[in-house]
Design a protein around this nucleic acid. Structure first.
Lengths: 196, 196, 196, 196
DNA sequence: AGCTAACCGAGACGGTACGTCCGGTCTTTGT
DNA sequence: ACAAAGACCGGACGTACCGTCTCGGTTAGCT
């Protein structure tokens, strides 16, 4: 997010007010009905100040969401399936209304806006993928996972089903279904005895 | 899609012109810059006529996409992995610009519009899921798949990774990566010798 | 005032509401604080509708003033000086607050906007000059004025002092001063006995 | 023009830069498109510095114009009509683009801003009226003018026509027309033999 | 000669209005 | 009688300036 004006002189209080107003209104109205005007009014800030620091509504929401959901590292209790279960439960919560309004709106917007998509990937997703991979490598060291498991593929198998259901409105899995999903996904990466 | 006016008196030529204009403009401008006004102008039709038969831009695009992409049954050559490879290649093409513009836009819009989401699922997705399940049951009969395989889970494992990559702009897999994805997904459903 | 959209389909009620709102707000706020937004809000009209038919705030005010002050022909009682006195009294009233707000604002704006200046001259001023000249020619026929009097010059001598005072805020003349002004101006055009 | 800050510490170089930038930009853009921001940028000065010393754009332009056009006394060659002709030629030049941009803009602004109007009258106009009256009294002493001529009326008759034409965009007089105007105006004040 | 108050540049800020775009509704007109 | 054409209200857009307000840094003039 390149900033032409001098970031040193930026008003932190305005920034906070904007991000807070954004999350509040997004929860109230939904991402689609959220407007830059409403954010400015709610935050007691001029529209110019928003446009000075962010290129679009999506960018503001991205920062607000990022700001809210600081990177929560994947838990590591030693039980890989249980750890994913709790991690995915958190993710599903973030994608479910009312809290999900911001994140889902962001995903929708990024599908249509390449710049926002770039920022979404680099600022929100990459760090979480890194956290995922770290946990997976730990599992490999623990012998719970094949040492040559392809982590890119694993990422898709574990998280993909959630987003597939989100996208086509097939309903989020309940705890039991989630367990089944994880079991199946991990099955593809079980350590195997050397095939003779 | 409830239609208040008498559908019998509907002008088929207007309908065709609208759907054709929609696809043309969507490819040219992208879904986001597509407007109802532009569709009306391009189709030589009054805006009123569009709003008479469709509730929103998304509904028009949905019908246009549905109209274009008739349900193609999953291929059945006897080689399950190869069949999915060709099927998924088609799906990826439909999600990749320029052709992907309409479908991806539709997905984005549906994330924010419950009515459109409903129609998208029921008109576009359900029949394709049915086709998927049919192919899977065939594979079960062929002994390539565990007879008790959970097809809902399988759907997520096979299609999920594609949409996960779409959503977070992680890049569509090439042919080789696609093969690896399918192999891993199917591995979870291999018929197993009865565990003693 | 060229109108691109089809004037036949124009809503007369909107036009009236806009012109009425313009005069009302201009009297209340003064021309300078009058805004297109406020006119639209007061008239219950979309800003687009204003911009569809007028190029600028000034053009709206011009039409409103023109609409209000239909051409009042110069009175003709037979007494030229008295007729001018009553005519100029009317003009001075139109240039004095609160009623004068619109006209003076218009004059100020036209000084900076060539297009508006053109319309102001052609639509408001020219017909009134014509009326002036008609009255003067009558006076010539009546022998109250030199038959070769230059009417352009007379126009400036009679009306100029008023606007000179307006422009430099020297105060409008009272009835007595006005009489003196007119007497002096007309003195330059008295019929003269052939100088021997 | 009340100045709260200490005028002794005022930076003369900033003042000069501001007035120079004002005249330059006013000629380039016209008074209407001139902005305080642009003046500040062009002068390499902070907006604050402008607002510290002047209450408005108009006040800056007034000072710039005043600064430029020092009061030139009415010429006195002995030929009253010729003297006015040369004086009015200068005035007309000051009211004609490009040079006229500042003065005309100032007049326009003052029509809407009472404070500016006050300053315009007192700083620019009054001294010039005084100069006019001085020349007129000289003419009275010379016997070219009725000794009881009303100089207020004379001022209006001589200068009014110019401003009347300016205001309604009737075109500035050429040299010949100007001569005619002056002749007619002065005719009202010719010394007359005592009417019997 | 050093201190300190002020003016200075820079420019971010809350605002207001701009003129445009498009959504969705309603009206007119011609066939 | 219908549907094209398109005017209409509404509301958000992103921009331009306004006039105010910190900031450090410099500078002038009084200790």
């Amino acid at each position: 997010m390149p900033e032409s004006p001098n970031p040193l002189r930026r008003s932190e209080s305005s920034r906070r007010a904007i991000l807070d107003a954004t999350l509040k209104l997004c929860a109230e109205l939904g991402y689609g009905r959220l407007t830059v005007e409403a954010i400015a009014a709610q935050a007691g800030v001029s529209k110019k100040t928003i446009y000075r620091w962010w290129p679009s509504k999506g960018a503001v929401v991205l920062e607000a969401v990022d700001d809210m959901a600081a990177v929560a590292a994947h838990p590591n209790t030693g039980d890989l399936a249980a750890d994913f279960h709790s991690q995915l439960t958190t993710v599903i919560d973030l994608l479910t209304p009312p809290k999900g309004s911001a994140a889902v709106g962001l995903i929708a917007e990024a599908l249509q806006d390449a710049d926002l998509a770039h920022d979404l990937r680099e600022r929100l997703i990459r760090p979480r993928i890194a956290s995922f991979e770290e946990r997976m490598r730990q599992a490999q060291r623990d012998g719970q996972l094949a040492p040559d498991a392809d982590l890119d593929v694993a990422l898709g198998l574990i998280y993909g089903p959630i987003y597939h259901r989100l996208i086509f409105h097939l309903g989020m899995p309940d705890a039991e279904q989630l367990r089944t999903l994880i079991d199946h996904a991990l099955r593809a990466f079980e350590p195997r005895p050397p095939t003779q």
